[in-house]
Design a binder for these strands. Sequence first.
DNA 1: TTGTGTTTTATTGCCTCC
DNA 2: GGAGGCAATAAAACACAA
Length: 320
Amino acid sequence: MAARSFLYGGNSGGAAVAGGGSDTNSILLTNKEAPLDSFFVVGSRSMVSFEDKRNGSRSSFFTTFDHEDNRDDEYDDYFHHPEKKRRLKADQVQFLEKSFETENKLEPERKIRLAKELGLQPRQIAIWFQNRRARWKTKQLEKDYDTLQQRYNQLQANYDNLIQEKEKLKSKVLDLSEKLLQKETKKGASDSSSTKFPCLQIQQESVVDCDDQYVSRTSNVEYVQDVVSDSSSPKYIDRVQCLLERSDSSYLFKQDQSDESLDEEDNARKMFVTPVNSCMLPKIKNDDHPELDYVNSWYLEYHGHDHDHDQDRSFCFWSY
DNA sequence: TTGTGTTTTATTGCCTCC
DNA sequence: GGAGGCAATAAAACACAA
């Protein structure tokens, strides 16, 4: 891209025309702000302050037109550096910063006032504010990004903790289940004549209006003994294991509280049936929850189709 | 001194609003 | 259609290490 000489939009007597050398693409910009800005070009006020850091001197292109004696020298000096960008002085920047703090938008009146006070062109003030807003926005985005990053890290840590906790509970459930099964196995088949899965006949205590409307839950734990008494079957153990593996956290409901009056073994029994939650599931076919059909089929397969238990029967379901 | 990265000033083109 | 804002970009000025 060809370099262009920078020009402010003056249009009066060529006073605002800053030209480039012959090797540059010198263009008089008819900037859209030119009509307003040209107000400052016409006349004798200083419009652009140029500071030469190397010798600390400061030349002012438009100011020079106030002084006939220096006019030619300054004019030559200016055109000697036709394309130099000049940084604003520290105090000018400070002034603009303070103004920006009060209001980051620049209405025309303020722009003109600032330009007068700082000896700059209104166009420069507008550009400075525009660039300043861009910098502010970038900083703000960085802040927002950092904030979001922190929140994400926190959530990630919480999630990891929950996963760990879940694994611990899962392993505890399995451990206690195993202990219980071992103990019950020792007891032999003396209780084997008792009803299989009496829990399936338990009166539902309450119906919970939850996302899965067909799910009701029970806090009844009296059936524990009977349930585990039938646990000598390897098939039964397989099924429990399988259910534990398959269970979906979407079935999580309020956990039954362990009874402190019970000893560890009793609690283990309770947890076995209600590892985290025990839910009574009505016999409903639901395509969204194949586990229910799985439980249904398990019951029918294992227990047989017993019409005594077939009325609005609920099935015991373990989940954690 | 020089090469390189960063900051600042300024332009351009597009968009929205009145 | 003009004014003004913004994003993208150019380019000068500056900082700094080698």
